[in-house]
Simulated scan of single mutants.
Amino acid sequence: MCTGVVALLMAGPVAALAAPESGDLALTAVNDDFAAALPVDALPYANVQDLSTATAEDGEPTSCFGATRTVWYSYTPTTTGMVTAGTGPDYPGIAVYTGSSLDSLSEVYCRPLYGYAPVTFEAQAGTTYLFRTGADFAEQVTFRLDVAPDPEVDFSPPGYEPSEFDTVAFWPSVHDPAGLGIASYRWEFGDGTTSDAQFPRHRFTADGDYTVRLTASTVDGRSRTAAHPVVVRTHDVSIVRLAVPSTARVGQALGVTVTVRNTRYAENVEVRLHRGGPYGYEQVGVETQPVPVKAAGNGTTFSFRYVVTADDRAAGKITFRAVAAVLQNRDALPADNELLSTPVRVS
């Protein structure tokens, strides 16, 4: 046996002996009795036996299951490690013993009929282990033995580009095929911080390309690591000025300017200009243009023209609203993408 954990798998292809031919079904299973236990020489191991010709031997222990059809296997590891037992179909029982005769067996582990989970235990180098498996109504049984696989480990990275203001939730997908269970989770977020939570939430405090790693360990120390890249980009623009004249008259074409500030990444920005009315705001203009990165205090100007109407004179004033939207990317702080003007008095 290789150093490490050994597993009797519950499913998978048969690797050792082929199923008996139909003409051989009248023959008794070759390992029907304790004394005829088939030796497992190397791992991985798989063997098919015809249970319909097998019987339970007089004096056979029942352990956690009794069955009228049973077969036996033996295994002596050369190094110490964990072992697991499984069958196909997966409902027959499996009992594991040490001892040299039926009346001197000591039970190591037992899975009852319809127990389904694999049998996993630590096998000591030089100790012979006897496996009894069977069920009353199974026609054939496949016995499998292998080094226990590492846990299956993965997680879902965020499906979007988080910003430095976002708290990202991570969801692991972890399973121990050997059946002992997961004992610990270790997250490394690539920014020098870690977490031992199963479902951590993490905020990246600076833009960058990070590799997030999850290492999950079983109760007996087997482990595996999964890694995914996480790209953090903070896209953010803001409207810092909405300039309008203080007064206007009917028929006048007003000049309205909107100043958009951007200090992070070059963006394509759409600005919509709205006019206030008795039923809320209605759009009166839209402009899209590239907004390059500029130092704080500088911005990009969007220019609009609006012709004053008789309805504006009836209201006595006009209030404009400007709304900016980053195209192709998600704005991290949309609250500062909107600005109202001072009222323009209309005469």
Rank of each mutant, 00 (worst) to 15 (best):
T247D: 15
S223W: 08
G192Y: 07
F165I: 02
F189R: 00
D191H: 05
F199Y: 14
I239F: 05
V212D: 01
A178P: 02
F204R: 07
F189V: 03
S238R: 12
S223F: 06
F155V: 10
G159N: 14
S156A: 15
G190H: 04
F170C: 03
R233Q: 14
H235L: 09
S184W: 06
I239C: 04
F165V: 06
V230Q: 02
V231P: 01
S184K: 07
W187D: 00
T247I: 13
S223T: 04
A253Y: 10
R201Q: 10
G181T: 09
V219Q: 10
T234G: 11
T193W: 07
R222V: 02
D207M: 02
R224C: 01
W171K: 13
R222C: 01
D207V: 06
P177R: 11
R233F: 08
V168P: 12
S195C: 00
G221A: 03
V168F: 12
P158W: 09
F189M: 08
G179Y: 04
G251T: 06
R203V: 05
Y210W: 12
P172T: 12
V231Y: 05
E161Q: 09
Q198G: 03
D220E: 15
D154K: 09
V231D: 05
E188G: 01
I239M: 01
A183K: 07
R224G: 04
P229D: 10
T205Q: 11
V231I: 00
E164L: 15
